[in-house]
Design a protein around this nucleic acid. Structure first.
Length: 895
RNA sequence: AGGGCCUUAGCUCAGUUGGUAGAGCGCCACCCUUACAAGGUGGAUGUCAUCGGUUCGACCCCGGUAGGCCCUACCA
């Protein structure tokens, strides 16, 4: 194999390579999964972003986690499928398009359904792949050929099949119920789409007069305008104040309607006046009261939230305006007793921000109790697991209190409900295929339901509809249940829970084995990133400035299980620097590959142990530790641990020490030695790059393509694993690791003396490194030149110095090895500094001695603690004591 | 109101079976040493929120308190 002599720039420029690399991966088909394979399957379904959306930091995190898992599994020999898709996002998309139309003076209602939907499709074709382009910038290794859209034919088929199935089972039904109504949308929304916010309002006290007797009854309300729909006043049956009024009537002011006074234990005597006005058609609690007491339900609202003709003189007004006018008139009538400020939770539509009005209407519902039971069960019995586990409780709790799901939306953009009403016999035909006649009376006079399904209905089928269901495809057999779902906790109920319900019902198995729930990406101050705060960070911009890899690594290094993460620019720059470090380590390696010929078995080539240097063996030993760790961490989805292990090995072991140790060899004349070092260097670099690849795919692919030992492409090479690497990793040795640690300590000791005594780096000094035993003697002998080089010494004697006057001394005690590092300071520095250094060191160690000896003199500790713990402490104590003794002696000699 | 989470170095955070506290960034000092100044070397910094309990031993386990966050539900 030819040697790369290409000069690399001293800075890594992601801008120059990232897009080119991605195109190459894609065109080579590396992301493609096989429908059938002898390899074990690994499948991740991408949570589909809104088709009109753009990539934000939440996606960046979510996608990076998935890409790391997918790339790791792909490299580990799995038949890996990461399936992308987009969501039609009914409300969101319709709102965006409507807004656009209004800008041009158009209106959806004027256009009509057909024309409007056509417009939305146009919009989809224009902007629908924006997010896909951005995903490519991030490096998402998704199987593009399988990309799905929630309104695709296949998915639509699935939607209808499920709808019909559940309808026939009686689990989808139509009902006249009180639902959350969003006036701007003219549509029902589900409970989950309502956000409750503490809102300052008023508590209005209104005086009613009891018919006949003329007694006064004061009720308190926050929404006085709803009195127009009141059909009762309710008091507590035991309330002495009102007991005698129960059964009597009052006449509502202005509209002069008679309503009953009823009693129910639901009423809280302590709150307000203890008398509650009951509006069954516009309040959830009153709705229940209304049903219980057989009250009349009076709907006072139009679909746009204005009052209807039931509101008499107030008809046509919006709720807020009606409130003002009602209150004003009450005041005129002298029946407004008082108005108190009152803070209470008000429901808002999470899409439009408008106040949600409870509204009585005919809607479609999914009966959830029976779907929820198995969905709860598979999580409590760990057929599927949440990571972190803490979400299990939340999920199960929610599944216990789940209410029926309102799935109809009065929108146009979405899956139209497959129900047809017969104009003649009123029968409802629910069918997968569009029927041409009523299934009961055969009348052709049928009309399809105008409404569409909640977007989450189709999302709930995503794990199997994207794999081809209801067709029995090979992909479905291979990849269902999917392996991992990665998502944020904000949609556990919207989405995850519903996928469990639908997956179990339709497929008879869980949709995924593991649900990984990550936190939110917040700004540096911990606030949610939002448009209104203007604190959003655009990941695409970050990619353009710092590279996708730096962004990905930043996210992963901070991705501790289940926690939110605060995004900081400084952190990003730090990891950008890491990319540069890796780049330069490669540059160094390639510059020193002259004359190197890669052996036939390349990365697995094993040389005789005796030809390897201590540093080689130490490096290989450390590498085996990292390989083990990283695979374990990834297995447990501990991303920050995996990223940090790789970071610190690459920078602080490989670059800081190994490359420095390799320099004398690479710069030297010993061709034999050089060849071995070059080999180890090439083998290790290759492994580091492969290990890092899932996290930072672009730079690793770029570097990989320049390595003297390499395969076709990094992305499809093997992920380093101790089991597969066994024979090569066995070249490493623990003895070498010990030896290196000792040598590193010696070097650190000399550097410390230098630093603390302000001896300039270019000032050559002499050192006497004194081994006190044969083993240490041998180790030092093996590494003398490295010690000289890395602590820039003029000379280094491996023996005791006779005259220890005015010498800096650092004792090293490690295991059985004892070494004293001695640097004469005569003429170099003010001795006072060394006195300070030593005193400081002694002081520090003495604290340790105190703690340790106290512990060891505690009989209970010695008796109860495990023997090895006691032994370790004893060993430590004696090492420290020996050090301190040596330091004291040295201190005395200084003066 | 109920449930959950958090409080560790100046900042952001790790710390999984309880055994003398770690990283990144920032800070201080010295260095353009032929891979890298997006770098190197050395250094400083913590009653691990607080109180109590369990234990030979607690950042870690249990309970109380204070402060911060999230979720669910809701009193008109």
């Amino acid at each position: 194999m030819a040697i790369m002599s290409e000069e690399l720039s001293d800075r890594y420029s992601p801008q120059e390579v990232e897009q080119k690399i991605y195109q190459n991966w894609e065109s080579k088909g590396y992301f493609k999964a096989e429908d059938q394979s002898t390899k074990p399957p690994f499948c991740v379904i991408l949570p589909p972003p809104n088709v009109t959306g753009f990539l934000h930091m939440g996606h960046a995190l979510d996608h990076t986690i998935q890409d790391v898992l997918v790339r790791w599994r792909r490299m580990s020999g799995f038949n890996t499928l990461w399936l992308p898709g987009t969501d039609h996002a009914g409300i969101a998309t319709q709102a965006v398009v409507e807004k656009d139309l209004r800008k041009n003076g158009a209106d959806r209602l004027e256009m009509g359904r057909e024309a409007f939907i056509e417009k939305v499709w146009e919009w989809k074709h224009q902007y629908g792949d924006r997010i896909y382009k951005q995903m490519r910038r991030l490096g998402d290794s998704v199987d593009w050929d399988r990309a799905c859209f929630t309104l695709d034919d296949g998915v639509s088929k699935a939607v209808r099949k499920v709808f019909v199935h559940l309808y026939k089972k009686g689990w989808i039904y139509q009902g006249e119920k009180l639902v959350n109504w969003s006036p701007p949308l003219h549509s029902a929304i589900s409970d989950l789409e309502v956000v409750h916010k503490e809102t300052k309002g008023h508590l209005y006290h209104i005086v009613y007069t009891v018919d006949g007797s003329g007694e006064k009854l004061v009720i308190a309300t926050t929404r006085p305008e709803t009195y127009l729909g009141d059909t009762a006043v309710c008091v507590h049956p035991e309330d002495e104040r009102y007991k005698n009024l129960v059964g009597k009537t009052i006449t509502l002011p202005i509209i002069n309607r008679k309503i009953k006074i009823i009693a129910d234990e639901y009423v809280d005597r302590e709150f307000g006046t203890g008398a509650l006005k009951v509006t069954p058609a516009h309040d959830f609690n009153d709705y229940e009261l209304g049903k219980k007491h057989n009250l009349e339900f009076i709907n006072i609202l139009n679909v746009d939230g204005t009052l209807n003709d039931k509101a008499g003189p107030f008809a046509g007004l919006k709720a807020q305006e009606a409130r003002k006018q009602v209150v004003a008139q009450f005041e005129e009538l002298g029946i407004l007793e008082k108005v108190e400020p009152h803070t209470h939770a008000v429901g808002y539509c999470d899409r439009t921000g408008a106040v949600v009005e409870p509204f009585l209407s005919k809607q479609w519902f999914v009966h959830t109790k029976d779907l929820a039971t198995p969905a709860r069960h598979v999580v409590s019995n760990e057929t599927s697991k949440f990571v972190p586990e803490s979400w299990t409780k939340t999920y199960i709790h929610w599944m216990n209190i789940i209410e029926d799901w309102c799935i109809s939306r009065q929108l146009w953009w979405g899956h139209r409900i497959p129900a047809w009403y017969c104009e003649d016999c009123k029968h409802v035909t629910v069918s997968e295929a569009d029927p041409s006649q009523c299934e009961k009376c055969k009348s052709k006079n049928i009309k399809q339901d105008e409404d569409v399904l909640d977007t989450w209905f189709s999302s709930a089928l995503w794990p199997f509809s994207t794999l081809g269901w209801p067709e029995e495809t090979e992909a479905l057999k291979t990849f269902y249940p999917t392996s991992v779902l990665v998502t944020g906790h904000d949609i556990i109920f919207f989405w995850v829970a519903r996928m469990f319900m639908m997956g179990l019902e339709m497929m008879g198995d869980v949709p995924f084995r593991t649900v990984y729930i990550h936190g939110l990406v917040r700004d540096s101050q911990g606030r949610k990133m939002s448009k209104s705060l203007g604190n959003s960070v655009d990941p695409v911009e970050l990619i353009e400035n710092h590279g996708a890899d730096a962004l990905r690594f930043t996210l992963m290094a901070q991705m501790a299980t289940g926690k939110d993460l605060k995004f900081s620019m400084q952190r990003l720059e730090g990891y950008r620097n890491f990319m540069n470090k890796l780049w330069n380590a490669t540059r160094f390696s390639l510059q020193n590959m002259e004359g190197f010929r890669a052996p036939a078995d390349g990365v697995n080539a094993v040389v005789e142990s005796h030809r390897l240097s201590t540093a080689d063996k130490w490096l290989i030993y450390k590498l085996s530790e990292v390989e083990t760790q990283v695979n374990e961490y990834l297995e447990d989805m501990r991303f920050s641990d995996a990223a940090n292990a790789l970071y610190s090995f690459t920078w602080h072991e490989f670059c800081d020490w190994y490359l420095e140790f390799s320099k004398p060899v690479l710069y030297g004349e010993n061709a034999e030695q050089k060849q071995v070092t070059q080999l180890v260097l090439a083998q290790t670099l290759n492994r580091i790059v492969r290990m890092l690849h899932p996290f930072v795919p672009f730079i690793t692919e770029e570097i990989y393509s320049k390595l003297p030992i390499r395969g076709e492409a990094c992305i499809i090479d093997q992920y380093p694993k101790p089991a597969k690497d066994r024979s090569w990793l066995s070249l490493g040795s623990q003895e070498a690791a010990f030896e290196m640690d000792l040598v590193k300590q010696v070097i650190a000791a000399i550097r410390n003396i230098r630093g603390e005594n302000s001896i300039k780096p270019n000032q050559k000094i002499k050192a006497w490194v004194t081994p006190k035993d044969d083993h240490s003697q041998k180790i030092l002998g093996n590494n003398k030149s490295e010690i000289i080089r890395l602590s820039s010494l003029e000379s280094c004697e491996l023996q005791a110095r006779d005259d220890l006057k005015k010498c800096a001394v650092v004792p090293i005690r490690m295991g059985d090895s004892e070494i004293d590092v001695v640097v004469p300071l005569e003429g170099l520095v003010d001795i006072e500094k060394e006195v300070q250094r030593l005193s400081k060191a002694i002081e520090k160690h003495e604290k340790d001695i105190q703690i340790l000896s106290k512990k060891l003199s505690n009989e209970k500790f010695v008796a109860n603690a495990p023997a090895d713990v006691v032994e370790a402490d004893k060993q430590l104590l004696s090492e420290i004591e020996s050090k301190v003794a040596q330091m004291r002696t040295s201190l005395n000699r200084l003066s």
